[in-house]
Design a protein around this nucleic acid. Sequence first.
DNA 1: CCGGCGCATTGATTCAGATCAATCTTCCCT
DNA 2: AGGGAAGATTGATCTGAATCAATGCGCCGG
Lengths: 251, 251
Amino acid sequence: MSDQDVLPQTVTRPRRIVVQPAGHDNCAECEVRSRSVCAALDIDDLSRLAALAQQIVVPAGQGFIADGARAEHFYNVTHGTVRLYKLLPDGRRQITGFAGPGHFLGLAVSTCYAFDAEAIDDVTLCRFSRTRLHGLMGDLPSLERRLLEVAASELVLAQEQMLLLGRKTARERLASFLMHMLPDGCTHGSDQTRLHLPMPRADIADYIGLTVETVSRSFSWLKSERLIAIPSALDVEVRDIAGLRQVANGS
Amino acid sequence: MSDQDVLPQTVTRPRRIVVQPAGHDNCAECEVRSRSVCAALDIDDLSRLAALAQQIVVPAGQGFIADGARAEHFYNVTHGTVRLYKLLPDGRRQITGFAGPGHFLGLAVSTCYAFDAEAIDDVTLCRFSRTRLHGLMGDLPSLERRLLEVAASELVLAQEQMLLLGRKTARERLASFLMHMLPDGCTHGSDQTRLHLPMPRADIADYIGLTVETVSRSFSWLKSERLIAIPSALDVEVRDIAGLRQVANGS
DNA sequence: CCGGCGCATTGATTCAGATCAATCTTCCCT
DNA sequence: AGGGAAGATTGATCTGAATCAATGCGCCGG
């Protein structure tokens, strides 16, 4: 046991954030482009955007945006899932959102970020200089328009989350959360009801304003009501979408 | 008592929403212009905006935006205060924000509103056609830029509210609410600590996710701690801003 | 194959805030 | 001035979720 363990942890994954310095001309073939802000741009404009982009890789558990730090970058998630959260001085945490492939991060007006961001699993991001992207926005009104759309739809989501946090019961919160996690378009009909949750129970708890125990009990309750099945903790099968929606909206 | 009371209520205030059809060239002298999105425009552009504007007056208690209705207008508050909220089918209400003079309303991406809006006191608004304002935005990038700023700062507020609703205690919530209500710039220093709340206790309760009773008890507690004084229900005097901030952030 | 560590579940008990129930206050309206 | 209604406060009790406390279940490393 006296080998080269110079670091306290024994991790096989990359421990530090990796920045792919350049050579990133592949925006045109980016698999998340259609879902991201980049969808607003045609091929020519895209290359101007690509010139600003760096690819960065963040290992699971690592933070890459810190509350209060100067906001020098925007990010676009290409792989993996990110948790965005705010902390109280005593450590209480509220997760304000999860960002998966295609999501845009860093829409702060102020010069500083007002939240933290951490990789849940291994995450790959496109990073843009804030000032340079701002400059580009003057030239590319469609990009700015797209950002406004993104901001407005985030706002709608935030308002739904306020309703959830302020007025829903534990079971209603979990049901609402699962409904939101369902891929778009399968909220109606009973197709494609398999669901993989990238985040652990503690993250769900801090997102919907409960404790881990209450989340677990609510999962068990939904299971006992035959609304879902839980093949493994991170995999949920929605058995009765309509029923789940009923619960989510207060029976 | 058998006079002309053809309506169930006996109200002296205007009962219906009044639309001032036109003659609204006074944007240049608008007293809320500097605080509103209109601040982004110079005098010439302002007149183009003014051409789209209608002034509407909404009596206290009246709704003027309905959840699910087609989103045909944007609004700018010029006088009074508006409550924005979402309802659950069984009537539980979450107020997602209050909008006072200068505030911009209607930033929905979708074709339909996803919230309700009601006048708290008598409210005056500037109303713009959604489609025409969208058209104007193409010509006036500074307007679009300003809207993006507004949306981004709303988002920051929404995230703080999620932290409040998900993780703060009753006292912390009320203290946070009062801190937010303080006019900008008086969060530090002990000047100007008088505060008028336009909304009743029930609205505060539905905003910070509590019941009226708990709001009232929390007010009494803050008073007993000498952090505030309550000359009348709607008037609060902040006695100890630093202390109130401490409570707001979890002692 | 076994041991241990990190997460998830389940059970027992407590507690902050909801609910139920009186007052109290303010301010119209007559 | 007086009566009443709407809002606010205060008190008594209840309850849903938090907290405290064991297990249970994979999964990885040896």
